[in-house]
Amino acid sequence: MKKTGIIAFVVIFCALALLPFAANAISPKAPLELDYNTPAIKSLEEHKCIESTEFMRSSHMQLLDSWRNDVVRNGDIVYTATDGTKYEKSLDDSCLTCHSNPEEFCDKCHSYEGVNPYCWDCHDSFGLWRQNESNEALYQDFLASVEGGQE
């Protein structure tokens, strides 16, 4: 009994230690491939995002977070990139115009790395809200007033 207990302990420990290897041996291996082939990106002369690829890879979430705070709390909607180009601080109207395939771009990487951003907690409903024409008009008025107020 004593011996079987020790052996069972060692076997369970080995099984736990080898579990990740075993799980990977049987799971399908799909390499991470991001799709940049959207009409908007294809039409660009130079294939680059608003900042360098390294910066976007590592820090896009913080950029978007600061954008949200700037837009929602301060009404500041203009982002000036490092190279001086100005962009609207908007996930829908800046990022997603080029990356119009979030399932093949955002979600691919996020699900590969197990990241669960809560962008769509708000943005989904906002998109729905804007589908109503009068709401869209309201939003455009708001944008115009904010832009006008800044300049």
Binding site: P20, N24, S27, K29, A30, S111, G114
Partner: peptide, 9 residues
């Protein structure tokens, strides 16, 4: 950390 060792997670 097992999110780094398993795919799909």
């Amino acid at each position: 950390h097992f999110r780094l060792f398993l795919d799909p997670i």
